[in-house]
Design a protein around this nucleic acid. Structure first.
Lengths: 103, 103
DNA sequence: ACTTACGGTAAGTCATTGCTTACGATTCGT
DNA sequence: ACGAATCGTAAGCAATGACTTACCGTAAGT
């Protein structure tokens, strides 16, 4: 039941930028913040939110900390949306059928 | 490129409750607000946000307005997450491979 | 050992947003 | 035609959250 935190975390545009930067593979905090307009502490705070939401994993590597996308967290959100998608389609088909019958 | 608005709209817990109420089929505003703790205008405002995000459709029916989940809006979000999912899995596999080779 | 690099945390500020009450517009029932 | 019902919008308020600067701990390099 962690998809709520995940969707809240992904609602922020800056956090989606961070996620996009990690699509190709793990990165250290400095590498993520480099080129972004906000300060490095701000990036740290976003990374904290994303990690708490289960969307990122952290692996300390010497001096630095490597962040990577956690497939499990993304999957939780996917499952929620798939369920919503199924129900929406069923309701849509039923509504269309009722309308055709009524008309 | 409308998935950003969709994910922002779904980030609010109250709006997810509204969406859940519409899973079974279209409902009027009063029916949605009935039993909820917030006022009806607040529900109207949420419905506005969800509609603007492409997640709901409105069909006026006499005195009332029937809101229903828009499958297209949900699908846009699904596609974004599927893409993210694919990249996350690839990056994960690559990282595991590099680690195995390096170790 | 001392300095430098890396990154998390704290405190404070400002904008965003979700809620309420009040009001107006449209449609149904009689 | 008139009163009631349904619903959207405006204005105002309080809470949440994203950002900044300042600070502290830990690991690497010399």
């Amino acid at each position: 039941m962690t998809y709520q935190h995940a969707i809240t975390a992904l609602a922020d545009p800056t956090r989606r930028v961070i996620i996009d930067r990690l699509r190709a593979g793990p990165l250290a905090v400095g590498a993520i913040a480099n080129g972004m307009e906000i300060s490095r502490p701000a990036v740290s705070q976003h990374l904290r939110v994303l990690s708490d939401a289960g969307l990122l994993t952290v692996t300390p590597s010497g001096n630095r900390r490597l962040y990577a996308i956690a497939p499990d967290g993304v999957d939780a959100l996917r499952k929620y949306l798939d369920s919503l998608w199924d129900d929406a389609l069923s309701a849509f088909a039923r509504a269309a059928h009722e309308k055709a019958k009524g008309q």
